[in-house]
Amino acid sequence: MSQLNLFSSSADQPINLLPYEGCVLYYGPVMSANEADRFYELLMQTVDWKNDEAIIFGKKIMTKRKAAWYGDHSFSYTYSQVTKTALPWNDPLLELKAMVEKILGVTFNSCLLNLYHDGQEGMAWHSDDERELQKNGTIASLSFGAVRKFAFKHKQTKETVALDLAHGSLLVMKDITQTYWLHRLPPTTKVSAPRINLTFRIMNHPG
């Protein structure tokens, strides 16, 4: 696995971290440490966090990790064989959405949030390629709290790329990335603090 601690010469022009068949851009921190701290606390307090659900081998389980799903409309989103209905935006999420849209020049209509209480909670290999999502659409990922490793693996060649996601940082996955690459948040015993992750997404409009 190639471990990346990578910034381009200009923070405004990050380079593609993937060697082929996809595009992942890491902008690093896109706000001050104080602002990142402020949003971390606001998200902890204002998001309607619920233990996430998944169906594994036909059995419904509740994860320690918590999640929340927000959007412009009451979008339905099914992953891990469980369907969520989007909640209306709150003010901190709208503020972060506007900031990310200004940086990227992309309009998002939904956001999936995850709360990892410590390093023992992670996410297995997967792609964000559900039918409800815009195909080859942009996904913008904001991280708050503990620094965690994030990894990519090519579906055919099994080549891997990994980097550390900093507090207040922005990572973007776009184009054909979800078709050819898996990604995960590996568990670790080295991290004891919580991490909040927001992934702004583009849902296909119902009807």
Rank of each mutant, 00 (worst) to 15 (best):
A124F: 02
N90T: 15
L198Q: 07
L198D: 05
D52T: 05
K155Q: 09
T179A: 12
D175N: 13
I176K: 13
T160K: 15
G122M: 08
M62K: 13
Q156E: 12
A86D: 03
L163P: 07
K158R: 12
K135A: 07
K97H: 00
K153I: 10
T138F: 03
K174N: 12
H73G: 03
P194Y: 05
S143R: 02
A11E: 13
I61F: 11
T138L: 01
T160I: 03
I202R: 14
E121M: 03
F108M: 10
M44C: 08
G58W: 05
V100F: 00
F152V: 08
D175F: 06
I196L: 14
I196W: 11
A162L: 11
E159M: 00
Q134E: 15
R131C: 04
E41T: 14
L165M: 13
V172P: 02
A140I: 03
L6D: 09
V100N: 02
I139V: 14
L115Y: 15
K66E: 14
V191I: 15
T138E: 06
E21V: 08
D128K: 08
S8L: 03
G207Q: 15
S141L: 08
L25N: 00
E130Q: 08
R195A: 04
R148N: 03
N114T: 06
F7S: 12
M203A: 00
K155Y: 05
S32V: 05
N109K: 08
A68Y: 09
N197W: 12
E35F: 06
F108V: 04
D72C: 02
V24I: 10
V30N: 00
F200G: 01
Y40G: 01
L171K: 02
A11G: 01
K66H: 00
P206S: 11
P194W: 01
P88Y: 09
A68H: 06
C111G: 01
K190G: 02
T107G: 00
Q3N: 09
P88A: 06
K50N: 14
A11Y: 12
E21Y: 13
C111P: 00
L104V: 03
A140Y: 01
P92G: 06
E21F: 14
M203F: 06
P19F: 11
L94Q: 14
N197L: 03
S74M: 04
Q45E: 13
C23Q: 10
V24Y: 01
T78P: 08
Y70P: 05
D52Y: 09
Y20L: 09
S76V: 01
P206G: 04
D91R: 07
G28R: 13
M31P: 07
E95C: 09
Y40R: 11
M31D: 09
R38P: 00
L25R: 01
K97A: 02
R184A: 11
S32M: 02
D48K: 15
S76F: 05
T160Q: 15
R38N: 04
P19T: 07
M44F: 12
L112N: 08
D37N: 13
L165Y: 06
N16F: 10
L96M: 12
Y40L: 14
H154R: 04
N136T: 02
Q13A: 07
D91N: 13
Y27T: 01
T188C: 08
L133E: 01
M1E: 08
T85Y: 13
N109I: 06
F200I: 00
L113Y: 07
Y180A: 03
